[in-house]
Write a protein that binds this DNA or RNA. Sequence first.
DNA 1: ACGTATGCCGCAAACGTTTGTGTAAGCCGC
DNA 2: GCGGCTTACACAAACGTTTGCGGCATACGT
Lengths: 333, 333
Amino acid sequence: MAAAEPVTLKVLAKELGLNVSTVSRVLNDPAGPDSKWASAQTTARIFALARERGYTRNPHAASLRTARSNMVGVIVPRLQDFVLATMYEGVDEAATEQGLFTVVANSLDKAETQRAKAEMLLERRADGLIFGDAHLTEPYLEELKGRGVPFALINRTCGEHLSVTCDDYAGGRLVAEHLISTGRTRFGVIAGDPTTSTSQDRTRGFLDVMREKGINVLEDRIIHGGFDAAAGQKAAIGLLAHPEKPEAIFAVNDFAAIGALGVLQERGIRVPDDIALAGFNDTPLAAGVNLTTVRSPMHEIGRQGLQTLQHLIGGGTVASTKLAPTLIVRASG
Amino acid sequence: MAAAEPVTLKVLAKELGLNVSTVSRVLNDPAGPDSKWASAQTTARIFALARERGYTRNPHAASLRTARSNMVGVIVPRLQDFVLATMYEGVDEAATEQGLFTVVANSLDKAETQRAKAEMLLERRADGLIFGDAHLTEPYLEELKGRGVPFALINRTCGEHLSVTCDDYAGGRLVAEHLISTGRTRFGVIAGDPTTSTSQDRTRGFLDVMREKGINVLEDRIIHGGFDAAAGQKAAIGLLAHPEKPEAIFAVNDFAAIGALGVLQERGIRVPDDIALAGFNDTPLAAGVNLTTVRSPMHEIGRQGLQTLQHLIGGGTVASTKLAPTLIVRASG
DNA sequence: ACGTATGCCGCAAACGTTTGTGTAAGCCGC
DNA sequence: GCGGCTTACACAAACGTTTGCGGCATACGT
């Protein structure tokens, strides 16, 4: 067990009687074994020795030289959120395929934290950023654009900034059409954080259908708050406090829906017989509690988010994307 | 809007009429403003200009020179899992406090993927690794130890390897004592993946109490599988297939418990009147569906996991830690 | 007054890559 | 048999840090 000296291009080159530049070029050539940078024989010898010695390029040296880190930073409200965790998985999967790697950070949906984390990632020389926590008014994104930092949004849109999202408006419509088709006429909405596009678009889609069908959803039956189970519980309690209980509730998010479900069960309200309930995203727990919901392609949103960013970095011309949702009808509604 | 040339030590030094070495030393001195590397005046000038120009150290250059990346790699079964996501948040929080940063990867609980991701992280020159996906037999960890790679385990233990976990055995005991105290005598266990310490320790704790109280839990009432809602559903169906239904079910994991809950409700079985149900971890959804469970300090496990690793890297002497769980009694049991 | 300590700072060599440019040898066509 | 073209490599300069060493003052001790 020798001193375990690191195996660098230099030691490979010396052993092969070559210059580091040649070794570097061959090893980096995407053409692989039939690189045009050396004779077939030399190329083979280089690959053989590199493999034998277990050579791995020092990414710090490479990044220093090329001024590219091959790293993209991802900022999400919170990784604990299944939805964002899934999208991040999609981002990371696509990144790995492209030879990139990702670093993720929680913003807790707070502007200052978002900014701090983003700046930290930029200090680490991220080549680009992906935001999963955009709010409808977002001066920081403008600033970044001004600074020429490449970035893309996932999950939530924000103005004209490049984004990959679910077609939330369409998803809201799906739920509305379904619940109306079951014959209900009084509705409540657990609408999530009003400063986000997901909240707004989903409820807008829902309400547009209601309006089109001539159904009036009272303003005070639309309850805003957060996206988690606790917010769902609180909103449900609010909706049930009305003299005329709703016949169906649309929560724009599965977690909020499950929180609401807990309240209903606690009070002995039968679902869906007394009140129907629908969520959004089709997280596994929705299946676990038989919740009607809208499936959004979370993983794919992440994947395309990274691809979009990469095109942007590559200087290509890219446009925002909206992926289609699917209604999943289960026992709750 | 000039060519936006990067602001390096060199440009600072030139502007100040100093040498880069001086600037570097002052900027790196943990003593901060009263560094002993330069006169108070010079130090002030350096800090002033650095701030004005918005200097940020190039981490690639620094890492190249120092051969330390200040990055630790974290490997988890899956970030979608709330429990591991929370632990990772703890890791990352502690890392940020220490001026480190983290990169996380999913292993999907598969040995090959775990190895592949770990090696990728090491190629990126991670200073150390944290595993949240250890299995009871784990040759790779032995190999890493042999190679001198610093690492720590969180969530699950494995042999004598350094770890920070919840005291799962104690948690299992808590559940057993509680369920017995409610007067039930026939039990079923949804035991999760048997190749993990969490599964084994939690069920062993549970069964030890049962044995101590003279209660016999039949072998076929202990159903193994995964840790997710789907596995919970399947296991619950299995348990209900018995002629004598259990009076209480302990799922070693909240998600599995929620899956089981769905099956019970679907069949019109009242919880807890007909069957009591308890989970493990106290995820927010447990509160959402009023599930009795065991609270494990997930975030803190992550934090201490990082601290442990850091001590290990620093050459200190460290021992494994088990953090105490708390029983949370809710409506389900 | 002389030697030594201390404060303050510069010099220069790494760290491991990537990449523009240089240069021999061999082959071609004529 | 000579110019030009390709093949197959070598040379060397960066990229931005960190850090051992050295040097010149001024202050201090005796």
